[in-house]
Design a protein around this nucleic acid. Structure first.
Lengths: 351, 351
DNA sequence: ACGCGGACGGCAACCGGTTTCCATCGGTGA
DNA sequence: TCACCGATGGAAACCGGTTGCCGTCCGCGT
């Protein structure tokens, strides 16, 4: 029966005080570190703390107003490489700034998203970061604006990350990257190689990220006085399987095209495999480009020409701007740039 | 001056009580839902709640013992696909069971890991899940055992996920997958094709996951009465860049081999690119295999033969066994199986 | 020797909830 | 008509911390 086994369970600050023969306030002050405490007392208290392996309950501290602040991160699916990189940036920056980091997955379900936000409001999270595109309907704006207000009313801040702003007046921080601009540059590059029938493998038609990239695709055509054939616009989602399926269908239909631009690298990866399966050479017969520049893009064969998006930086920026603000700070709207990364998957058309 | 603008900030349960003309206890009871409250009172309270957009402070509830439980997830880098899938499983299962999910990234630094665990102890997390291999030294076991004890003393549970157990007696749940077995099966498959010089691109020499896979590599050889040339064992880390570099170096050295087994799919991806860059055909000239079966493995060219690891299930299982236990439950040690997925990257050697 | 001030530490109030215990009230059966 | 009972709601204690306020004690200067 060692002395040690007397830790009958969670011990409170008063238990520690009793053992050290002082009051709870003194223990609190010793642990706090600033208030003057005599060396003898401090030693006794610290010994008791050590012997009991005491750690103050962070929740109680939070109630008293001195807790570790928390920040919440709500996304669709952390499994997607771009989301994972944003999550990485968010988490790194949050812990750098001494915040805890809560993560919630919504599976893309708006109801879940609302539930999570409400929970985070109850948690009094310093900031709630909503990540990823969504359907930009009037209801969305209305709803999200209410969410922003109710978060603001408990002192926490809503951040929209890669998601459309709500118009003026909502207490919101927006951090976006330029989907349209990136797609424009990418498609311009493809067109400059001489391609004229460029298949676009997009995402859900009402998804803002997908829409932005699609707009870039169209704009790049128009800038050259071209008007792309509507049958070249395909819609799916942002998964590898979607790219694979869409590509296979297009091939089976006998659709004519000399280049493919996918809405994400994942989609491009699936499409590439479908092309390979059909015995089509890339970029000899067909060129292919992606979007996101995930690490794997280099390892596809041929290496994928794509648009680099600074996802990690995006995440870092989201938390930095959200946390480093005073009530007077004007609402910010940041737009990060992207750039085309030219690799081997785009070449001039065959003939 | 709308009536609404009187939400001067966070409102407490007493504010709600005042507005509804009842006591705080009554509000608590209405919100709690079980205690008998007259319809009239309930209505008045609910109206006040709605008008003030009140949400009870979850931290305060937690102190009172009725909070949303929380679970913590500590990993090296959420950017790795296999980690991301585990994270997904953990998060999904946690929210399914009504828990919040905290995530911490350690960058592989043991000090950070310890700091995080201490924070989670302060948070009174229901469970702390430590994810991913590590250096299995006596100090590690000693230290981790202390961590497990101190977590247990505040009522939370340590879970080791894909990490070596600590020996008997530590209050720990272990959920592992069979690194050695998977590597054994994979390498046996490669050897069965006729390969005799199989390059192994491993991880850090003292990393348990890397060690397990390396042991499988060796065991598969010995089972055939083979004794692999030590120069065929290379060490790096689990990144794509490591695979790329190791492969290039081996090529530059003029090392002889007819097959390559990489410790992870990421490593394999980098290696594949290095092989392509050197003009080597896979699997015509050299066969290649990976480990993890990340979604991308199918889209490499050729599609990667690899070992499937049920990462998502691993994460789910970790939280399920950690949370669904009573103090009497014996400490569990689960070992999940893996299986080889044969695709196109392994073929018999050239001649 | 006396007064003064700073160092130290305890009491009690507070953070924002929950819950036990008890008082009140209206209705019912004898 | 009165005693009794169940339904309802308030006061106060509690969860586990922090901190303002104040009393005590000690050492110092004059």
């Amino acid at each position: 029966m060692t002395r040690k086994s007397e830790d009958a369970g969670r011990s409170t600050i008063r238990d520690v005080a009793a053992r050290a023969g002082v009051s709870a306030s003194t223990v609190s002050r010793v642990l706090g570190g600033v208030y003057p405490v005599s060396t003898a007392t401090r030693t006794r208290v610290m010994r008791a703390v050590r012997e009991m392996d005491y750690v103050a309950d962070a929740r109680a501290k939070a109630v008293a107003g001195v807790g570790t602040p928390t920040l919440a991160f709500v996304l669709e699916d952390i499994t997607g490489p771009s989301f994972a990189h944003m999550a990485y940036g968010v988490e790194r920056e949050a812990t750098r700034l001494g915040h805890l980091c809560l993560v919630c997955g919504t599976e893309g379900d708006v109801e879940h998203e609302l539930e999570f936000v409400e929970m985070m409001r109850a948690q009094r999270a310093a900031a709630v970061i909503l990540v990823g595109g969504t359907a930009d309907t009037p209801e969305y704006r209305e709803r999200t604006r209410r969410v922003a207000d109710s978060l603001a009313s408990v002192g926490s801040r809503l951040v929209l990350c890669g998601r459309p702003p709500l118009g003026p007046g909502a207490p919101v921080t927006v951090v976006e990257y330029d989907n349209e601009g990136g797609a424009y540059a990418l498609v311009a590059h493809v067109l400059a190689q001489g391609h004229r029938r460029v298949l676009f493998l997009g995402g859900k038609p009402d998804h803002t990220t997908a829409q932005g990239r699609e707009r870039g695709y169209l704009a790049a055509h128009r800038a050259r006085g071209l008007d792309p054939d509507p049958v070249l616009l395909r819609h799916g989602d942002f998964t590898r399987d979607s790219g694979h399926r869409l590509m296979r269908e297009a091939l089976e239909e006998g659709l004519e095209f000399t280049a493919v631009v996918a809405a994400t690298d994942m989609v491009a990866a699936g499409a590439l495999t479908a092309l390979h399966e059909a015995g089509i050479d890339v970029p000899g017969d067909v060129s292919l480009a992606g979007y996101d520049d995930i690490p794997f893009a280099r390892d596809l064969h041929p290496a994928l020409t794509t648009v680099h998006v600074p996802y990690e930086e995006l995440g870092r920026l989201a938390v930095r701007t959200a946390l480093g603000r005073t009530p007077e700070t004007p609402d910010e709207h940041l737009l990060l740039g992207t750039h085309v990364v030219v690799r081997g998957s785009v070449a001039p058309p065959a003939s």
